[in-house]
Design a protein around this nucleic acid. Structure first.
Length: 510
RNA sequence: GGUCCGUUCGUCUAGGGGUUAGGACACCAGAUUUUCAUUCUGGUAACACGGGUUCGAUUCCCGUACGGACUACCA
């Protein structure tokens, strides 16, 4: 097997879509598994759609996701430049070669003429409104014009494009690593534009030329490219590179969580989840789209989740580190059908990864949010809070959401619980407990519990009966981390103060 | 419309001519936790349809339906 060289080749037209991250991931996995090379190439041949900042965003997003690039933009390499806009002369040369070999031709048709042709053919039964073997001889191009006339137009600087001369009656076969043999009839392919009138190549030419020159071994890309893959095969053939043609693998698409169709930003917005890896501010509208990173998704968790959307190892193991993915990955086990994007599953992965993360990795972030919330916190206290909350969180920011109670005393109390359980007897027991807490010099979860038990015994009440209410006086709510641990973290004085507050402020039912 | 691709629980999927069609997420119930969450146990739930081939098809073949992608001087 030849050296594995794969590329991720996005277009810098905006933020990197999550589906693009998965495509990059599969490329990366194959490269690493075979000790090959991962290349990042920027396909910026459409000047009109260029978005400033998009290229850097793509690099940042891949870096965050843990997908490292060996060769490419901002990295360099033996096949530089890796930005297609900087490779213009190269494409021109190959387009010329195609013309010289009679495989491509100049076309001078205006946009209006093309439109007119499509209109004319729209209603003709059995005809496709395409620029191809059926129609090319009725158009303005170097096949219908005399050599003289063509030369005159070229010299005069008339705008032109270069089109591929696609044969009218030929079967084109290609082998897709995921889908097997795919056969397409050449008559269904139109004479695709190879060079645009602005001198830039189209995707089709640029991608084939670059993949060949960069010695790409596998083209792993989205399924939306499958229909044009036969065209690319033709290009390899006419350029004389068929022996070196990369292997193709067309990935199933990521679908909307509900309904039908390709996952889009609109769907993500509607369902309230991100679709971009990192925050992205659209330069045109100024609109901010929140990223997975900012939402609290861990890169490892997102990668694991993404890897399983369309691929699985065939075992029952679900949690895979990047290294394990590299080990286990294989193109053969990629599915054929599109995969719905299920954000709940992503959350589950995140929870799993957060749980196995060492507490010490979480303290700094937590302490920052405490400070941002206008409070202060010792590392020791932070560690205790994280320990208490660890089993209950899905995202890092949940530590602050759920840990606020350690810094802010409640001012309101769970209505239902008040109505059901709050009475003079309970208040009396809690008052006695507050006395005990104030009498103590310090408390631990154990001593707080022992104290509660002794108070309860003295007043002839079961501890279980007041635990819920005690929690409410401390946190205001009916759920939260282990109550005794909560008391320990709060300390005896603050705990007692909160209990007294509650006794004073919650009216007794008459 | 045309071309191509696809179709196993609600979702991600395993499997593959004879299986109680397996797992995970989600959901529901029970257990444990004298509090909440965790955890554990259990449960509901799927081979799109119709023809073949075959002793036997969810699995192979052909249709149909449904879905998707593509059909630009966008990638």
């Amino acid at each position: 097997m030849r050296d594995v060289r794969v590329r991720f080749a996005p277009s810098p037209t905006g933020a990197l879509h999550i589906g693009g991250v998965r495509t990059a991931l599969y490329n990366y996995l194959l490269a690493r598994q075979h000790r090959g090379t991962m290349i990042l190439r920027i396909e910026d041949t459409d000047q009109g759609r260029y978005v400033p900042g998009a290229e850097q965003y793509i690099i940042d997003a891949l870096t965050w996701a843990g997908i490292t690039i060996d060769e490419g933009v901002s990295k360099g390499g033996p096949h530089a430049p890796y930005r297609q806009s900087e490779r213009k002369p190269i494409y021109k040369q190959y387009a010329q070669q195609l013309i010289d070999h009679g495989r491509a031709y100049y076309a001078f048709d205006s946009a209006e003429e093309l439109e007119a042709m499509r209109e004319r053919l729209k209603d003709v039964a059995g005809a496709n409104p395409q620029y191809g073997s059926q129609t090319r001889l009725q158009m303005v191009n170097s096949l219908t014009l005399s050599a003289d006339e063509v030369g005159k137009r070229l010299n005069a600087g008339a705008p032109y494009v270069i089109r591929l001369l696609v044969p009218g009656n030929e079967e084109i076969h290609l082998t897709d690593l995921i889908r097997g043999e795919v056969t397409v009839h050449s008559s269904t392919i139109d004479d695709k534009v190879l060079m645009k009138s602005d001198g830039m190549p189209t995707y089709h030419l640029a991608n084939v030329v670059d993949d060949y020159l960069m010695k790409i071994s596998h083209v792993i890309r989205g399924e939306e490219w499958l229909p044009s893959a036969p065209l690319h095969v033709l290009l390899y053939r006419y350029l004389g590179w068929e022996q070196d043609m990369p292997q193709f693998a067309h990935l199933p698409l990521l679908l909307k969580p509900d309904g039908n169709g390709k996952l889009s930003k609109r769907d993500a917005d509607k369902m309230g989840f991100p679709i971009f890896p990192l925050n992205w501010t659209d330069p045109a509208s100024g609109e901010l789209a929140q990223g997975f990173r900012e939402r609290g998704y861990l890169p490892d968790a997102l990668i694991n989740f993404l890897a399983f959307l369309g691929w699985n190892p065939g075992t029952e193991q679900e949690l895979f580190s990047m290294d394990q993915l590299i080990q286990a990955f294989s193109i053969e086990r990629i599915g054929k059908a599109g995969a719905r994007f299920d954000i709940q599953k992503a959350q589950w992965f995140n929870q799993q990864y957060l749980k196995i993360k060492p507490d010490s990795d979480l303290t700094t972030g937590f302490m920052d949010s405490v400070v941002a919330g206008g409070h202060s916190c010792t590392p020791d206290k932070a560690a205790k809070i994280i320990h208490a909350l660890k089993e209950r969180v899905t995202f890092p920011q949940d530590f602050w959401e759920q840990g606020k109670i350690f810094f802010v005393a409640p001012t309101t109390y769970d209505n239902q619980l008040v109505a059901k359980k709050w009475n003079a007897d309970v208040a009396k027991v809690l008052g006695a407990y507050a006395d005990e807490l104030e009498g103590a010099t310090a408390i631990t979860a154990e001593s707080a519990k022992a104290l509660l038990e002794s108070v309860a015994m003295k007043l002839n009440i079961k501890p279980g009966q007041i635990l819920q209410v005690l929690r409410m006086t401390i946190t205001g709510g009916s759920s939260g981390p282990d109550l005794m641990a909560t008391l320990e973290i709060l300390g005896n004085a603050e705990s007692a103060r909160r209990i007294r507050n509650a006794i004073q402020n919650i009216p007794l039912a008459s």
